[in-house]
């Protein structure tokens, strides 16, 4: 299957999708506070109730006091130095978007290096 995409299409789409990502992050404080499908399932089957479920404990140990403070920079999608909860969540979303874009900025360099050092089937790829 050919997955090449025209570069003019890419240029326009790139900014539209990035904008959509930032808009989505801005809506994140509106997210439902109900447990997600997995947590809901575990709470249902935890004999000691939701408060003592193993999933709850695992979450707490990571994000709340007495766990591993500061180990996860944006633990529970909160930014440590921002007190306003909504702003804190939105900012953590922005940070995640930037982290992903940074990865994809540097990924080609790493992948090419990998390709040039071990490319046994280079014959099928002469045009690149």
């Amino acid at each position: 299957m050919n997955f090449a995409i025209k570069s003019s299409v890419i240029k326009n789409s790139f900014y539209i999708i990035i904008a959509a990502a930032f808009v989505a992050a801005m809506f994140s404080p509106l997210a439902s506070q109900n447990p997600d499908g997995l947590d809901w399932t575990i709470e249902k089957h935890s004999p000691a109730g939701p408060e003592n479920s193993s999933a709850g404990d695992a979450e707490k140990s990571k994000t709340e006091e007495g766990g591993e403070p500061g180990y996860f920079i944006f633990g529970d999608y909160k930014t440590p130095f921002i007190k306003n909860e909504s702003v804190s969540t939105v900012f953590s979303g922005f940070a995640g978007i930037v982290l992903i874009l940074i990865f994809f900025k540097f990924y080609p360099l790493a992948a090419r290096k990998n390709a040039s050092s071990s490319r046994p089937g280079a014959g099928d790829n002469l045009c690149r």
Binding site: I17, F27, I100, F104, Y107
Partner: peptide
């Protein structure tokens, strides 16, 4: 070019996953 669009879409999916 393909990686640019991949980065943008990945960032979008990440952000969209934040909305329960």
């Amino acid at each position: 070019a393909g990686l640019n669009i991949a980065g943008a879409l990945t960032a979008f999916v990440f952000a969209a996953q934040m909305i329960n």
